[in-house]
Amino acid sequence: MNSFEPQSQDSLQRRFHQDNSTTQQPRDTTTPFIPKPASKNHNNSNSSSGAAGRSFQGFGLNVEDDLVSSVVPPVTVVLEGRSICQRISLDKHGSYQSLASALRQMFVDGADSTDDLDLSNAIPGHLIAYEDMENDLLLAGDLTWKDFVRVAKRIRILPVKGNTRQVKRNE
């Protein structure tokens, strides 16, 4: 079922694009009530979801790109102790490992590619945490990647202090 989620999101974005291009009031009045049941149907039916995704291809690519960039904004990355932040677009990465690689290149000087790279060793001596929409600080890695991209609003890189609990959590 995870494989259908991106199609659902694409469908929602494209439907929004349709709303954007339509200016007639009669259609505007009816549109708000249709998407929700349609979305449910797409979630329930495999073929329907696939068809919906394909039928919307080719619609205003430029506008769609704008929509995508506004729907998933880049997030701020803060390294504890540094005053200058960096930004990263999570939608350009497909996994935690890809994010770990990007963070390593950002913050580790002379970093070479490592095969067994993951969040726990991306930046030596540091933990990768994030703030969600409720401003709670959480350790990155517990959610699926897609859920993480949806809820992470800021990434914080915190030093591991001499606390054995923190170290063990990464095992």
Binding site: E5, A129, D136, L137, L138, D142, D147, L158, Q166
Partner: peptide
Amino acid sequence: ECNSVGSFYVKVNMEGVPIGRK
């Protein structure tokens, strides 16, 4: 979305530990 994919994530915090988990 969480319910539809068969998962139910909640936050967990431990007293004295600043970083929570899901």
